[in-house]
Design a protein around this nucleic acid. Sequence first.
DNA 1: ATCAATGCAAAGATTTTGCATCAAG
DNA 2: CTTGATGCAAAATCTTTGCATTGAT
Lengths: 143, 143
Amino acid sequence: MKHIDKIKNLVKENGYKLTPQRLATIEIILKNKDKHLTTEEIFTEVKKAYPNIGLATVYRTILLLDELKILTKHNFDDGKYRYELNDSSESHHHHHLICSKCSRVLEVEDLLTDLEEKIEKTYKFKITNHNLQFFGLCDRCIK
Amino acid sequence: MKHIDKIKNLVKENGYKLTPQRLATIEIILKNKDKHLTTEEIFTEVKKAYPNIGLATVYRTILLLDELKILTKHNFDDGKYRYELNDSSESHHHHHLICSKCSRVLEVEDLLTDLEEKIEKTYKFKITNHNLQFFGLCDRCIK
DNA sequence: ATCAATGCAAAGATTTTGCATCAAG
DNA sequence: CTTGATGCAAAATCTTTGCATTGAT
């Protein structure tokens, strides 16, 4: 099944209506799979396809998609949240390398599985999610 | 040298004035070493010792202390930033276990040194800082 | 036909800024 | 003294909410 259909189903299965505004928002997020867009940026893009949409609707749609774990909220310390579509294969996590100079965001494969096991045992803490960011200088900016 | 004197020196060495407002703010942050206070909380505490201080001054002082790497800014996804005093021994880092139920924040020793080396090599990315958070259920809430 | 979803504008919440005044160095 | 620091209030940002209206099921 295509990713967009999975998302559509998730929305419907959870008793939410599949409105054109939600669909337009989902399409923009899908189209920018690899980016980390802010709500404002998503809003601007969605407006091109659906000029009447209100910012509040985009905020509410993103809230919904976050609840349904369709996307992940990131905070790169620039004062606003950024959103990224989750991989359809449930378990895929990754981390971010954030360049302090050019703000480029690189992705790194998940490296924490072993660590999590250790932590769960040591601290008796049931981990459901994690967030790992590295700040520094990317290859381009080191030069 | 006592930690507070180190901080005082850092402020002065960098050409900033050591005003009573800044001192009062630093004292509150020191007194709450192990907590993760918001600016508003710091402001409320500082006001007890220095009732005339303005919120903007506390914001500006925190900005300064962040620049001087005297404290670290955290975002636990509750919509506001929280600050924590850095350990005086430069290199001490740690991570956070954030309970999704009771919001308790536990600290975990730094576990990333090996990982960072690997990442620096693989991605040619010079890491200057990192942020690792685990979300889940703490021992008390698991029951 | 319902009841959730929308759009708009207003309100909230947090943080920043402009400016006249003050005080640390 | 001089220049940065302060306090206050206003503004800027980002996000949420109330409410009348619309539209998906």
